[in-house]
């Protein structure tokens, strides 16, 4: 069940996220739940595999915007790191960062179930 307490426990900066939603818990939680069906992380993995770093940067940057607004710190951290690497079109091994992001997204998804 998706609650602010669960999100706190998960490591989200809930107070900041809530403040951005005018401290409206229901709205904040609705926004967080909207991240569940988001497929950008999978698309990012595919783009990196295909060495399409331009597309990779667009996707990572979009995710950064979304997760940073909601202050979902645990998933934001690896996404942030990938965004900066991709901004410089760094051709490196992203698997650890991808795995970390996927793990965090999985945890979020479970909370929302």
């Amino acid at each position: 069940m998706l609650t602010v307490d669960a999100l706190r426990e998960y490591g989200a900066d809930v107070d900041t996220g809530l403040a951005r939603c005018l401290n409206n818990e229901a709205f904040y939680l609705r926004m967080v739940s909207m991240t569940v069906p988001d497929t950008k992380l999978d698309e990012l993995e595919a783009a990196i595999a295909a060495k399409d770093l331009d597309r990779g940067f667009e996707l990572a940057h979009a995710m950064k915007g979304m997760y940073s607004n909601l202050a979902l710190t645990p998933i934001l951290n690896p996404v942030n790191e990938m965004t900066e690497l991709l901004r410089a079109r760094t051709d490196t091994d992203y698997s650890k960062l991808l795995a970390e992001a996927k793990l965090q997204k999985e945890m979020l998804n479970r909370m929302a179930e």
Partner: peptide, 13 residues
């Protein structure tokens, strides 16, 4: 904005 969550949050504000 291409990101729906960002659109909605700003719209909410």
């Amino acid at each position: 904005d291409d990101e729906e969550i960002n659109r909605q949050m700003l719209g909410f504000i």
